[in-house]
Design a protein around this nucleic acid. Structure first.
Lengths: 125, 125
DNA sequence: TGACAAATGCAACTAAGTTGCATATACTCA
DNA sequence: TGAGTATATGCAACTTAGTTGCATTTGTCA
């Protein structure tokens, strides 16, 4: 049966406190800042566990590594190519698209990933 | 000025011949099969060059590495979680979404990535 | 054909993520 | 509440994707 360990609790706490998706290193930094002795293997394993449980979502934003965030309500991302800020964006038209894909192609969509890259409001002009 | 080298030509040829996005290793295998002595650094550099020129598109499909395909007309992907087949999918509603994002949020979308994960027709039932 | 910039190859490196195995610890139940 | 045990952790060593510096080769054009 699953156990509530300090590392798990602290990672959950961190994920709850952040707005942008975080990478493994940020998690490790947070644990260190809380004076928890830690280890990347453990962090990878906890995050993988959260991922398998559906607690977190895994994202790739073109960096060659994964980022994670709490799997609250589904949304997409607006990633600024200048300042790197990641905004959330919610929309329902994709659900329509998924239905269409099934009708037209017989492909049953389980989930999707949608990221928009561009220039945020502050970085324009 | 840019040169047409055997490696570049052969990689172009390979990209033209494939339907699914390929990874670096597949490119190296192809070059070997054509008896071109090759080297991963060169392949990375050529692909990066193609990418910067806008000749290829770079994709991440949750594998922890990149895949590439010719930048023909823009489309999305349907990735089967059982057999791994990657189908293309074209749709215009995303363009509408991009306009909406600019109107609502002032975020100027340069490009997006959209992948659908699920079960293809053949793998169902 | 020769000069020169562009392209390649090699070796060594970095960074993300994984594996095996020994040790530590959260939880259960007597 | 304390011992036993499965779960979680830590360490070291590894794999794989991708990068860098530098010396050598090669395509192109005059």
């Amino acid at each position: 049966m699953e156990r509530k360990t300090p590392a798990k609790k602290t990672i959950s706490e961190f994920l709850n406190s952040t707005v942008s998706p975080v990478d493994i290193e940020q998690i490790i930094e947070y644990l260190r800042s809380k004076n928890l002795k830690t280890n990347k293997v453990t962090v990878y394993r906890i995050i993988e566990h959260f991922y398998k449980e559906g607690i977190v979502t895994r994202l790739e934003l073109g960096e060659g590594k994964f980022r994670y965030e709490l799997n609250r309500n589904h949304h997409h991302h607006l990633i600024c190519q200048k300042c790197g800020k990641i905004e959330d964006f919610k929309d329902v038209t994709i659900q329509e698209l998924e239905k269409k894909i099934f009708k037209q192609r017989g492909f049953l969509v389980k989930y999707h990933s949608l990221e928009f890259f561009g220039i945020c409001k502050n970085c324009q002009g």
